[in-house]
């Protein structure tokens, strides 16, 4: 074996380790969190949504219908495994009466309808957003992302990544205590 070839695995590994170091440093400084990216929209009025309704071609999903309520926007797609994982918990929340507006992002219409039929529909309404119209307005990085909008129409919280009970308790639950008992 030639001398230089024997060094290839080492060099490849060092490059990989360099990437990990870079990521960890960014995480350590708080510049990067794979689970959560701060959004500029927190504390600002929610961008308006006007999308075709996934389940009803003649209807449109509008954010103005939610004025005066505390509600969630959940960005999802059938192509995203994390969305599958959080789905059961979203069902649980919707049974508790939490209103969730879904944005089906960069997805195939038939797949999305199938998914909701098979696994249940936790959303009050689902806007279909194949061209990222709403997603760009909301500054969405990836799916799933969940936003909380208060009764004044201000974005209060955002979570990137699947929604689990712990995250719910830490960030979202407090906004609903005033309205209704969770659990």
């Amino acid at each position: 074996m030639s001398k230089s070839r024997a060094f290839i695995p080492l060099l490849a590994f060092l490059a990989l380790a360099g990437l990990f170091y870079f990521v960890l440093m960014k995480m350590g400084k708080g510049e990067y969190n794979p689970r959560d990216i701060p959004t500029e929209f927190i504390g600002r009025p929610a961008p308006s949504i006007d999308l075709p309704n996934l389940l009803d071609e003649n209807d449109r999903v509008k954010s103005s219908d939610y004025a005066g309520k505390v509600w969630l926007v959940n960005v999802w797609g059938t192509w995203c495994p994390e969305c599958w994982k959080e789905h059961e918990y979203l069902m649980h929340l919707s049974r508790q009466g939490v209103p969730i507006l879904g944005i089906d992002w960069r997805d195939e219409k038939a797949d999305a309808i199938d998914f909701l039929k098979q696994k249940g529909n936790p959303f009050v309404e689902v806007g279909f957003d194949p061209n990222s119209d709403a997603a760009i307005d909301w500054g969405v990085y990836g799916a799933p992302e969940t936003f909380l909008i208060d009764a004044e129409g201000i974005v209060r919280e955002k979570h990137a990544g699947a929604l689990y009970p712990q995250v719910w308790q830490e960030k979202f639950a407090k906004y609903f205590h005033a309205q209704k008992p969770t659990e």
């Binding site: 074996m1 030639s2 060094f7 695995p9 080492l10 590994f13 380790a17 990990f20 960890l24 689970r35």
Partner: peptide, 29 residues
């Protein structure tokens, strides 16, 4: 998750894997 833990494992990883691949590069040739 905890970046401090991540950093420790990364150091461990570099020592173990980097060390053994370096030894490999010297010996295997």
């Amino acid at each position: 998750s905890d970046p401090a833990r991540g950093m420790f494992i990364l150091m461990f990883l570099v020592t173990v894997v980097g060390g053994s691949l370096a030894l490999y590069a010297v010996r295997a040739s």
